[in-house]
Design a protein around this nucleic acid. Structure first.
Length: 105
DNA sequence: CGGCTGACTCTGG
DNA sequence: TCCAGAGCCAGCC
């Protein structure tokens, strides 16, 4: 099984209304880095998997959405998360204590 | 087979 | 607190 498939599988386990960081996903997959996760998600847009993987629930370590696409994709990501109940602070950050999938430590 | 492309995280100044 | 640089690797032409 390709590494990307394993990453997608972990992302699919994130429940609605919750978010996880690239590093946490990488940790769960094991043997891969946060950057690998970012690369895998970037590859999603040119894959059919994009329809079945909740990529919007993966954000960076600072609780913010990393700029990607034309800077337009990140906006869509925020819209999707807010639709699930995730709330962004004034600085555009998410509260890990409230919306983090696994407790951030 | 060689080169190009990315949605991160950490560390030091 | 903010910014720049380094480390790093699978997929797809």
């Amino acid at each position: 099984m390709m590494l990307y498939e394993q990453i997608y599988d972990v992302v699919r386990q994130i429940p609605p209304g919750r978010v996880a960081s690239y590093g946490q996903v990488a940790r769960l997959v094991g043997g891969c880095t946060a950057r690998m996760v970012g690369y895998a998600l970037a590859a999603l847009k040119r894959s059919k998997e994009s329809e079945s993987v909740p990529w919007q629930r993966v954000i960076n370590r600072h609780g913010k959405i990393s700029p990607h696409g034309d800077g337009f994709g990140s906006l869509m990501q925020r819209e999707r998360l807010e639709a699930e109940g995730v709330v962004f602070g004034e600085d555009g950050r998410v509260d890990w204590q409230t919306f983090g999938w696994l407790e951030e430590k």
